[in-house]
C-alpha cells in the first residue's frame, strides 16, 4: 500500500498530470465495472463508448454548437448579473438606509430558488431565451449581491478614514477603497454565482431548451442514449473546472493574494 502511495505521489508531481491524475482511478473503476458485464451495456456504457460518442458529436458539430450556446448564455447572464449585483451590493453595503430598505427583500427573493421561478416564467415568457436568461441572471445576482455587501462592510473604517483625510471624495473612495477592499468577497460571490448559474442553466435548458448541454442530455434521455447523457455530465464538470482554474484562480492570484488580503 505504501509503495503504491509513493509511486502515486511521484506520478502526480508532473504538473501536466496533476489536474488529471485524480480522475484516473475513477475512470479505471468505471471501465472495470462496465467491462465486468454487471449491468447491460446500454444502461452502463464504458469510457471508450463515451469517448467515441464525443468524437462523433464533435464531428457532426452538435456538441460544439450546443456547448457554445450554453456558454454564451451563461456568460451573458453572468455579465448582466454582475453588472446589476455589484453596484447593488455596494449601495446596500454602504448606505444604512438602502440596507434597511432592501436587505429583507433580498433575503426574501434569495429564498425563492431559480427553478421555482420556472412555472410562472413559462406562463409569462413561454419556452424561450427570455426565460432561460431570467433564470441565470436571477441565480447569479444573489450570491454576488450578498457577498458584495459582506465585502463592502468588511473594509475597515480606518481605510475610509485614511482616504478621507487624504482628500478623497465619496465616489473616489468607492472606486479606490471600497471595491478593491471588497474584492475577496466579490470573487467568492462571482464563483458561487457562476456555479449556481451553470446548474440553473442546465436545469432550465432541460425544461425550456431547444439547444445547449442541458437540452442535449434531456434529448438523449428521450432517445435512450445513456452514452450521450454521461458525455453531457462529463462536459459539465470539465467546463466548470476550466472556468475556475483558467479564469477565477488567475484573477485571485493577481489581486487579492498578491495584496495579502487572503493567504494561501
Amino acid at each position: 500500500m505504501r509503495l503504491i502511495l509513493i509511486a502515486w505521489s511521484r506520478y502526480v508531481r508532473s504538473p501536466a498530470l496533476r489536474s488529471f491524475a485524480p480522475f484516473i482511478p475513477l475512470i479505471l473503476l468505471w471501465a472495470i465495472v462496465a467491462e465486468s458485464g454487471m449491468f447491460p451495456r446500454a444502461f452502463f456504457p464504458g469510457p471508450a463508448e463515451v469517448v467515441n460518442s464525443f468524437g462523433s458529436l464533435v464531428y457532426k458539430g452538435i456538441l460544439p454548437e450546443y456547448l457554445e450556446d450554453s456558454v454564451v448564455r451563461l456568460a451573458l447572464g453572468a455579465a448582466a448579473g454582475l453588472a446589476l449585483g455589484i453596484p447593488l451590493g455596494v449601495l446596500v453595503g454602504l448606505s444604512s438606509r438602502a440596507h434597511a430598505m432592501l436587505w429583507p427583500v433580498l433575503l426574501f427573493f434569495q429564498a425563492i430558488g431559480d427553478i421555482a421561478w420556472l412555472p410562472i416564467l413559462l406562463i409569462w415568457f413561454g419556452f424561450g431565451l427570455t426565460t432561460v436568461t431570467f433564470v441565470i441572471v436571477y441565480t447569479v445576482l444573489f450570491p454576488v449581491v450578498l457577498n458584495t455587501v459582506l465585502g463592502v462592510r468588511s473594509v475597515p473604517i480606518v481605510m475610509h478614514r485614511a482616504a478621507q483625510s487624504l482628500g478623497a471624495s465619496r465616489l473616489r473612495i468607492v472606486w479606490e477603497v471600497v471595491l478593491p477592499g471588497a474584492l475577496p468577497n466579490i470573487i467568492t460571490g462571482v464563483r458561487n454565482g457562476l456555479g449556481y448559474g451553470w446548474r440553473a442553466l442546465i436545469a432550465a435548458e432541460m425544461i425550456v431548451g431547444t439547444s445547449g448541454i442541458g437540452f442535449l442530455m434531456f434529448d438523449a434521455r428521450r432517445a435512450g442514449s445513456v452514452v450521450e447523457i454521461l458525455l453531457g455530465m462529463i462536459v459539465l464538470g470539465l467546463l466548470w473546472y476550466v472556468v475556475d482554474d483558467w479564469a477565477l484562480v488567475p484573477i485571485e492570484r493577481a489581486t487579492v493574494q498578491r495584496w495579502g488580503l487572503v493567504t494561501r
Binding site: V158, R161, A162, Q164, S165, G167, V177, P180, W259
Partner: peptide, 20 residues
C-alpha cells in the same frame, strides 16, 4: 468640518491600502 486633506493622519494600524 469633517475629515480633510489639511489634516494628515497616521494610524496605529498603518491603514495603508493593501491593493496599492
Amino acid at each position: 468640518d469633517g475629515p480633510g486633506p489639511d489634516r494628515g493622519v497616521v494610524f496605529q494600524s498603518f491603514a495603508l491600502f493593501p491593493w496599492k
